[in-house]
Amino acid sequence: MEITGIAQREAWLKKVIPPVECVAVGLWSVPVVFPRNPMRYTLAYVLVDGDDCLVIDPGFDSPQGRLDLQAGLGAAGVGVKNVTGILATHFHTDHLGMARWLRQMSGAEVILGRAEKRYISAFEDPADESAADRGRMRTWGVPEDRIHEAALDVAGLMHLKRLADADLRVGDGDLVPASANKLTVVETPGHTPGHICLRDESRGVFISGDHVLPRISPNVSLEMRGDTDPLRSCLESLERIEMDDDFEVLPAHEYRFNGLAQRARELKSLALGRSAEVLALIQAQQNPTVWSVAESLRWSRGFQSLGGLQLRLALSETAAHLQYLRTAGSKHDVEGLPQHQVVG
């Protein structure tokens, strides 16, 4: 893998915000701060072609984030009022968060993948939803004094509920409006059920969202009403993009790079290795639960240091591996783990 975003990588290593960069003709990389999160920022992309101005993954909505995005638009020679399209690769707050404000300011349509539905915030009563999520954490074996950290509370659920809805949905092979017909949609479910990437053959770039990152393995979580086997979907999506190896990869975090096929194979290998690790723990434990397996796995920051959202992601990712092993059939029989402890 060849790192092409040299300044971005240096900023990542120094834990500072990278500069706005023109990464191809009419295409700018714009870092937008992601407050109180280890990822620190999202790399939004501003694409300007004639009268078209598309903002891809506008980022988390915060006062500083709005300033960051406006600075990036200014570097591209446009302003908020010039935005003609807003596209989010998936339904997460650090990607879709600022779409509602940007739509209000510009009048542009919000575009999402056709399968990216409100699976997390598809509830009627947030209190009932929070209670159901706490119940799920209990079936996963989460200690009672840690459930409040891992489960979604009412405030968090309402934050998700306020995220922008799609005005327009696009599917595999579609051309994205407001991109001068230069961006082709590539459906890549896994990180979320309707995650999409974007291929720009004219510029030789592949905008990967969170599906492929150069250093981090993107989280794949089992969520209520989401994909019933998200890790399997992710692995299939990684196989589908290996043919796009000639493109420079523009991810939503970290830094740009070449070598998409190699990185996709690495991510598949890492995921399958993790599943093998999970299987060994299930076979070794007398009464395995999602919690007991997760706390025995190797995590970059150590399981004991995880709290809040990071703890939830670790548990949901572990559950995704358990579900993948279960659906793999007799070859990977998950003995001793009740079905209700896995299904989202």
Rank of each mutant, 00 (worst) to 15 (best):
Ala151Ile: 07
Asn219His: 06
Gly302Arg: 09
Asn181His: 08
Ala166Val: 09
Asp165Tyr: 08
Arg162Ala: 13
Pro31Tyr: 06
Ser208Thr: 14
Ser296Met: 07
Ser300Glu: 02
Val185Tyr: 00
Glu266Pro: 02
Ile3Lys: 02
Ser275Glu: 09
Ala88Ser: 15
Leu297Trp: 04
Leu279Ile: 05
His90Phe: 08
Asp61Glu: 15
Val110Ala: 03
Arg263Val: 04
His191Asp: 07
Asp125Tyr: 01
Leu27Thr: 05
Pro18Thr: 02
Arg138Leu: 15
Gln285Leu: 13
Ile282Phe: 08
Phe34Met: 11
Ala150Val: 08
Pro38Phe: 13
Glu248Lys: 04
Phe123Tyr: 10
Asp229Lys: 10
Ser275Asn: 15
Leu250Arg: 05
Val78Glu: 15
Ile111Asp: 02
Arg103Thr: 04
Arg169Asn: 12
Tyr324Asp: 15
Val16Cys: 01
Phe206Tyr: 07
Gly141Phe: 13
Val334Asp: 11
Ala11Asp: 01
Tyr45Gly: 12
Arg40Gln: 14
Leu235Tyr: 05
Cys197Ile: 00
Ala76Thr: 07
Arg9His: 12
Ser300Val: 07
Gly344Trp: 07
His148Val: 15
His340Thr: 10
Glu317Thr: 13
Gln70Lys: 10
Arg36Glu: 15
His159Trp: 11
Pro251Phe: 07
Leu157Val: 10
Gly194Pro: 00
